[in-house]
């Protein structure tokens, strides 16, 4: 099933895409919820272009707040989609810290260059469909949802 999956550089987390009738699902795996959030963000970039094509040259700070951890994931991905849209940037490195309802993160990336990044599609929004933050049997965290493109 993990045909679109890549291992992260750290060798710990990983991400993959999953199928949805009209759109595409992003899924991150990690030892902690934070790492799963970071990997889901990489999967998000990969909807547009292979993350390895994106140089982590500029940093953007992101904050979200939501007492529901799954909605916090929804907010995190939508915050990234917003930053991608208004800054015309793509991101390839993420650092997420979660304390209770508060998420603080830094995303590194670079301005979008259509000729080099060859973006496949623009993301409209992260959705509640298949939205899940959970631990699998082996204790690994999974963070996922379908994104509308």
């Amino acid at each position: 099933m993990n045909l679109n999956a890549r291992k992260a550089n750290t060798g710990q987390g990983s991400w993959e895409h999953f199928s949805h009738a009209a759109d595409i699902g992003v899924r991150g795996f990690g030892d902690t919820p934070e790492q799963a959030f970071e990997q889901a963000a990489l999967a998000l970039t990969a909807v547009v272009t292979p993350p390895e094509r994106v140089q982590p040259r500029e940093a953007v700070d992101i904050r979200c707040r939501n007492p529901d951890p799954e909605l916090l994931l929804f907010d995190w991905l939508n915050a990234l989609i917003y930053e991608m849209a208004v800054r015309q940037m793509l991101f390839s490195r993420f650092e997420v810290h979660i304390e209770g309802a508060q998420l603080q993160a830094r995303a590194w990336g670079e301005p979008l260059e259509p000729a080099r990044h060859r973006p496949a599609v623009e993301i409209k929004g992260a959705t509640f469909t298949e939205l899940k933050l959970a631990q699998d049997a082996s204790g690994r965290w999974v963070a996922q949802c379908v994104v509308d493109v």
Binding site: D75, G125, T127, F128, L131
Partner: peptide, 30 residues
């Protein structure tokens, strides 16, 4: 375009969070 996507995202979120207050039970948050 982006304006519609953002309105959709924001209201999807606020409607999901306000559903219990409106006495609406959602079988699917969407």
């Amino acid at each position: 375009r982006g304006l519609g996507h953002q309105i959709g995202t924001e209201f999807l979120r606020s409607m999901a969070m306000a559903a219990p207050r409106h006495g609406i039970s959602l079988p699917d948050r969407e």
